[in-house]
Design a protein around this nucleic acid. Sequence first.
DNA 1: TTGTACGCGTTATCAT
DNA 2: ATGATAACGCGTACAA
Lengths: 342, 342
Amino acid sequence: MSEAARVPTSKDVARLAGVSQSTVSYVMTGKRAISEKTRRLVLDAMDQLLYEPNAGARALRSQRTSVIALIVPFDSEMSASELMTFIKEIAYISRQNDYDVLLVTSDEGAEGFRRVFARAQCDAAIVLEVAKSDKRVELARQAPVPTIFIGFPDDSDDLHCIDMDFETGAETLVNELCDVGSTEIVALGWDPVLAARDVNYIPRFRGAAESAAARRGVPLRWLSVPREEGGVEEFLDEVLRDGRRPGLLVASQVAKLGIALFRRGIRAGTDIDVVALSNHADAETQPIPLTAVSTHPGDVSRQAMDWLFALLRSPEATAPGRRVVASELVRRESTRHIPRDN
Amino acid sequence: MSEAARVPTSKDVARLAGVSQSTVSYVMTGKRAISEKTRRLVLDAMDQLLYEPNAGARALRSQRTSVIALIVPFDSEMSASELMTFIKEIAYISRQNDYDVLLVTSDEGAEGFRRVFARAQCDAAIVLEVAKSDKRVELARQAPVPTIFIGFPDDSDDLHCIDMDFETGAETLVNELCDVGSTEIVALGWDPVLAARDVNYIPRFRGAAESAAARRGVPLRWLSVPREEGGVEEFLDEVLRDGRRPGLLVASQVAKLGIALFRRGIRAGTDIDVVALSNHADAETQPIPLTAVSTHPGDVSRQAMDWLFALLRSPEATAPGRRVVASELVRRESTRHIPRDN
DNA sequence: TTGTACGCGTTATCAT
DNA sequence: ATGATAACGCGTACAA
């Protein structure tokens, strides 16, 4: 790059337009009447200089950053496509509302979250994966700016939380397996490390699945499968031995399971029934497309952002609470489509 | 959330520590000698108040933001897993160097890029996908802060560009197909929309593939396949008709192709030879793992960030240029492993 | 309808 | 070794 061209300030604009600096400011904010002539003068000068207001100065003076912090769990078990949908959607909607997005990795734990508030780097935050007992909950209560949690911590009083309906989703999946004739169910659950991290949706999903199975009188075995090489293979060794073919409820590692079954020559929907918790893209791009309850990351993001902007516009009028995004079963080819009478 | 707790300033720290505000500043920057006693006093006060310096004020005064802008092509044809690797790696390395990452979508075209500079929102930028003739090139030259391009625009004088070695990669893949016995090659190329957008690596890869095929005396047909529903299916209809089984060179839509072949009952590595340009994760998670040249998004990111921080530390000493990250063939199961004499 | 002046919270220069 | 003070660029209360 050549030499650092200095960036013009509102003072430069003022000089070029032949007005005072404050007039330039008022033209931008529209907070007082400006004669059409002056307005044109100022706008022309801005165009000519390619002027943009200095973000730091504006933030310092106005106490608004026009930035939304997004706390991303890069190390979670979400598939890349699901996580990407969240990030992409949140980035798009932010820009549509004239906000930028600051990416914060949740590896730093609660620290990164605290930092962006304490440094006044954002006007709001979105947390993408929350623990049942999450240190960020208390921080959010004391925070100078609003936070939307995607997920339900145990103590969510006065918080804004939104998530997909994992409970109904789990029940739907279990019922689907029972309806196509499964007399035993084995669930491929999340990595024990993730479970130990106390991720909120794991017990929500698992509890609902177990209750639903109990109601149907079908035994359900939950196995937490490590993400490492071989985890899914061992799971299948264990589950399929002696020629057993239980209904599979796949909560995690959807892609790996689809491939692993295929490599064993076991055809989902023919030799075995498989249902999954999965976003649309992942369910479709398996060797055999999976019957699945969609996690709808796009919908969740959109609703979260709607709520957030309502909150930014009128903090008082926007009540806290838990919002649930409906789950939905999409039947694909991994289950036998036995006619049912319902 | 409860009522907006006010965030403490260096003035609050000074008062609590019983020193002047400037002393607090000097303790942070270390730019002058401070007695151990005073230093302790100040640091304790900071801890007690959970003080963090205000980002806007600091940026305004110091002309440094500690933010790196990342220009992300959400609408590109990169797989989610590949794009996510870039983002994740860049975010991690940034934090290790005490920088935050501002996410900018490249949908805005050059505009978003210009904006973050003009508003002084970042100390540097990384552009993740670049056109041969890219408007951001000229902007980067005039920009007040350095930019790293991942990809090679036509006019890259005085720019810092880094990318994977697509040329050698293409040649390697073509040679591999020839070596396992292909007498004709068909390439699954990028979406025409993406090609029309002039993405730099498309002609780089395609040109090298065509040259390599010519050198081997093997005809190569390049087909640009739309991303839409059915694009890959039509490609296969066309390519496989009359029982033809050309060597397949898959540059794009790797996952879709793997599934589509499987659904037709055509086994890669047995019925047909397939090689791909793909990152490790995508190549592994196909029904039949693909012999592929890896795009190494992690390596490219790391090297890009190393370069960037060198540039931030000593702009003069860090020369512009084009850097190439070596490509590497990994043989998996999608090609017949015919012994060769080399 | 417009200009002057102040302060947001820092960093860094000038004093002492 | 430390304190007072002047910018950085913007938004807005106060004057005219």
